[in-house]
Design a protein around this nucleic acid. Structure first.
Length: 284
DNA sequence: ATACGCCCCTGGTGGC
DNA sequence: TGCCACCAGGGGCGTA
């Protein structure tokens, strides 16, 4: 479910509901997600104040008093359920972790496939964490520029789809938004990065930023308030222009139209890629 | 040092 | 209904 915009929106929801609150209890219903959950969370978290939230790529950081941070990744199927402590709540399947605060806020972490991750780290050493240390630039940050991307692409033959998915290069783009960004920039997903013109690189950087900020804006507006009893945010606008539209016309019907015979689906490094064969020709 | 499969795991969907 | 193959937003890791 979550790529950068979804993670950002989940984090904002957590911030609104939990920042400033004191943790009362932690329940680990399962000892492991992708990796073991450090059991010392049970000792460390209670009585600490939730000071701040941050996002790094697709990771959420929850910073606590006393110099501890909780690191959270939602994997493919992770969801954060935010609500109030209740009595007759039906149990939620795959709710592996529950954190409650003194004033009754309840956060459940649901993750059926358990590709997600949860860890406890010292706030001062967040950047040294093995999962964060090698992360690339934030695509919405000032460091992600045409110059940066052109330098990274120079002389390399990696397919551009794979390069954009590489979290060590750019942190936060996933399969859907990469397809959408390549479509907006009119670049074929199999193009070797070293062959992409400077103008196209520039368009690609802008397309990445646009596609992410559009989705964040849609996510924020779809949450009227953050007092929803669940974190079921999913993908906000399902109006993808190419993703999931194999055989259908590309674009968003209104603003764009194309005579293409339909969106094409190919598989690159084991994952589906969708693109328009007319607007994203193999050479340019 | 880079690149590519493999694998982790559960659930939904569509065909027979 | 049942069974089965296939697919799914991620990403680390071992092997070449």
């Amino acid at each position: 479910m979550p790529e950068l915009p979804e993670v950002e929106t989940v984090m904002r929801g957590m911030r609104v509901r939990l920042e400033g609150h004191i943790i009362a209890s932690v329940a680990l219903r399962r000892a492991d997600l992708r990796w073991p959950i450090p059991p010392q969370m049970l000792d460390v978290l209670p009585a600490r104040r939730i000071e701040a939230f941050a996002r790094r790529g697709k990771y959420i950081l929850m910073r606590l008093s006393g110099g501890w941070s909780v690191l959270l990744h939602l994997g493919m199927s992770g969801r954060v359920m935010l609500g109030m402590r209740g009595q007759n709540e039906p149990p939620v399947a795959h709710e592996h972790v529950v954190i409650e605060t003194h004033d009754g806020c309840r956060m459940g972490l649901v993750d059926p496939r358990r590709f997600g991750a949860l860890d406890l780290i010292e706030t001062a050493r967040e950047d040294e964490h093995r999962l964060l240390a090698t992360m690339g630039v934030e695509p919405l940050g000032d460091d992600f520029t045409p110059g940066f991307l052109a330098a990274a692409f120079k002389g390399r033959r990696t397919p551009v789809k794979a390069a954009l998915l590489d979290q060590k290069l750019i942190a936060g783009l996933g399969n859907i938004y990469v397809c959408e960004a390549l479509y907006r920039a009119r670049i074929h997903p199999a193009a070797s990065v070293g062959t992409i013109s400077r103008a196209k690189v520039k368009a690609l950087v802008q397309a990445c930023k646009d596609v992410l900020s559009d989705a964040i804006a849609a996510g924020g507006s779809s949450l009227r308030d953050y007092v929803q009893p669940d974190g079921e945010l999913g993908y906000f606008q399902h109006a993808w222009r190419v993703y999931g539209r194999e055989g259908q016309p590309c674009g968003d019907h209104k603003a764009e139209s194309c005579d293409c015979p339909g969106v094409v689906r190919i598989v690159q490094s084991g994952r589906s890629t969708f693109f328009c064969p007319v607007l994203q020709p193999p050479t340019h």
